[in-house]
Each structure stands twice: as structure tokens, then as C-alpha cells.
């Protein structure tokens, strides 16, 4: 029991230990290799880091609940792109012309609604057909991306609203708007998963689906709600990012699903469901962003960053497995 507790603490704390390690490593390495004279652990740099974590981080919170539930959602990148298109394009629609700046909340709501609806489609298919979520969302990933291209061909969709840009670039109490969104989403999803019946049932379903069914938990609706939440969060992520940038390419958001899943898995969520923590996912998001930023700080290019992150992900899962084996008595299968 004692050893079990120790390895549990190790596992829960590992991601934060890793972040501290990264901070120290890049600060020291930055002294020798840095291309700029700025210190890595500079206040502004760290604030920027949080802001840049937001698009992936917001979706990662949704991915955590979907994965705890025992599912996965590969279509988040495509949902993100569709919602971005809806957000920017709807501001130019003729029917909203007389609204002035009031078009902003309308466009936001439309984008978020789109995300929820697309998530609901995923959830409904998984629930009603019983097809594995991996396959369903693989299909919808392709399908939704197709919709983006059908909408505007290869052309980017652009619309800059300066009021919106001002809002997105604002710093409230020192933190950027995007950072606030990330923090609020993290808190809200943490609350959902730990304090509500829905959240606890989601854990139960992912952990032992048969037991959950036997206990009368209605598995389908819970899964659908979680897919709607992740759809909403993918949309929110698009809203936060494109409010500032004002232009969306049809290829935007590609590979987001993989970055998000990487962050979630680094944070210790099990691929098979049932276990995972929102706080650790937050750690996973920060750890990845630190790694990307840190490696470029010491002059590595993007391909090196991908290689390193890939290696670290595999190393983490290997360590996790080592911590989980039950010693020599275990049946080898």
C-alpha cells in the first residue's frame, strides 16, 4: 500500500516536476545558446506563453472529459476551423448590417452554437450506432474539414473588426484575454468533473462501463453531453484566437487533435478512460508550450521540436507503464 501511494504521488506530481525541469533547463541552456539576449523566464515571455497555450489548452480540457469518459474526439481541429469561418464570415452577413458592434456577440454565439451542434452530431452517432468514437470522429474530422473547403474553396476567410481585436489583445489584471478564457474554462471543467453528478458518472462510465450500466447510469446521454462540451470548447478556442487574428485558412486547426491528445496524455489521462485530472491536463498543456517555446528560444527549428515532443510522449507512457506493473506476480499476456 505504501509503495502504491508513493507511485501515485509520483504520477500526480510528475507533470509539475517536468515543468520545473523545463524551466530550469531552458533558463540555463538559454544563457549559452539563446538567439536573443532576453532571459527565458522573463515575465512578459511567461505571460505570452500562457496566452499561446490557450487555443490548445481550452480544447484539451474538453478532450480530458471525453477521454475520461472512455471516448476520443479527433474532429476538434476541423470543428475549430468551421467555427472560425462562421465567426469571421457571419460578421459580414447582410442581415446583421444594422447591428454595428453588436454583431460581435451575435457572431460569437453563432460560432459557439456551431461547435455545440457539430459535437452533438458526433455524440449522437457514437451513442445511437455504438460505433467506436475513434472511427466516428475520424470520419467527422474528414467530413467537417470538407465543409470548410466547400464553403470558401482554398481562399482564406478574413474579416477584421478592430473593436474585437482590441478586446482580444487587452490585458486584464496583467493577463491576456485568451489566458483568462483558458483559466476560466479550466476552473469550470474542473468543477464539472469533480463536483457534479454528471462528472462523477463520466468517470464511472470510463472506468467500468458495465458496472455503470448495471447501476442504471444512462451511458449514451452522458457521452453525448461530453461531445457537446468538447464541441463548444473547440468553438470557444476558435473564437478566442480568431477574434484577434481576423483571418482563417481552410487548413487551420489541422493536427490540433494530436497536440491536444498529446497534452492530455502527458497530463496522465488514461487512453482507456476512467482516470485523469483536469489540473494535470493544464500541466500537460503548459509543459508542451514550454517545450515548443524553450526549444525555439535555444535556436531549434520546428522539426526538432516535433521530434523531441514525440520522444518525450513515448518516454512518459513507458514510465507510466513501469509505475503500473504489479511486480513479478503479474500474468504475462
Amino acid at each position: 500500500m505504501q509503495a502504491g501511494k508513493l507511485s501515485k504521488y509520483l504520477k500526480d506530481g510528475a507533470i509539475w516536476g517536468f515543468i520545473v525541469f523545463e524551466l530550469i533547463f531552458f533558463s540555463v541552456a538559454g544563457e549559452f545558446f539563446s538567439v536573443s539576449d532576453k532571459a527565458f523566464m522573463d515575465g512578459d515571455n511567461m505571460l505570452l506563453l500562457l496566452k499561446q497555450s490557450a487555443p490548445i489548452g481550452i480544447i484539451a480540457m474538453g478532450m480530458t472529459i471525453v477521454m475520461v469518459n472512455g471516448n476520443i474526439d479527433l474532429s476538434v481541429g476541423a470543428i475549430y476551423a468551421i467555427c472560425a469561418v462562421v465567426l469571421l464570415d457571419s460578421m459580414t452577413w447582410a442581415i446583421f448590417e444594422g447591428l454595428g458592434n453588436w454583431v460581435i456577440p451575435v457572431a460569437w454565439c453563432l460560432a459557439l452554437l456551431t461547435g455545440v451542434v457539430l459535437g452533438a452530431i458526433n455524440g449522437l452517432i457514437v451513442w445511437k450506432t455504438g460505433v467506436d468514437a475513434f472511427i466516428v470522429t475520424l470520419g467527422s474530422m474528414l467530413g467537417f474539414r470538407g465543409l470548410v473547403f466547400m464553403y470558401n474553396g482554398e481562399q482564406p476567410t478574413s474579416h477584421l473588426n478592430w473593436t474585437l481585436v482590441d478586446f482580444a489583445e487587452a490585458q486584464i489584471l496583467g493577463l491576456h484575454t485568451a489566458t483568462w478564457f483558458l483559466l476560466i474554462v479550466t476552473a469550470a471543467i474542473w468543477f464539472l468533473m469533480n463536483r457534479t453528478v454528471h462528472g462523477r458518472n463520466a468517470y464511472a462510465i470510463g472506468n467500468n462501463r458495465e458496472a455503470a450500466v448495471n447501476a442504471g447510469i444512462r451511458v449514451g446521454p452522458h457521452m453525448m453531453i461530453n461531445f457537446m462540451i468538447i464541441g463548444f470548447l473547440a468553438a470557444l478556442s476558435a473564437v478566442v484566437f480568431y477574434s484577434e487574428s481576423g483571418s482563417v485558412n481552410p487548413n487551420d486547426g489541422q493536427l490540433y487533435e494530436l497536440w491536444v491528445i498529446t497534452a492530455v496524455v502527458l497530463g496522465g489521462t488514461k487512453l482507456t478512460g476512467g482516470a485523469g485530472s483536469i489540473i494535470s491536463t493544464f500541466g500537460g498543456v503548459i509543459a508542451i508550450q514550454l517545450l515548443r517555446k524553450g526549444l525555439s528560444h535555444i535556436g531549434a527549428d520546428t522539426s526538432t521540436v516535433n521530434l523531441v515532443i514525440g520522444l518525450i510522449l513515448i518516454a512518459v507512457l513507458f514510465l507510466d507503464r513501469q509505475l503500473n506493473v504489479k511486480g513479478k506476480e503479474e500474468l504475462k499476456v
Partner: peptide
Amino acid sequence: SLADELSVAENIYLGELPR
């Protein structure tokens, strides 16, 4: 028929957690 990641209390009241 238990969910082993959850607490004893949650398992006993699985599906009928007091709200």
C-alpha cells in the same frame, strides 16, 4: 462490478449519487 478508480462511497451509490 465496481469502478476501481472511484471512491468507496461513489461505488456504493453508483448511479444514484445524492444531488
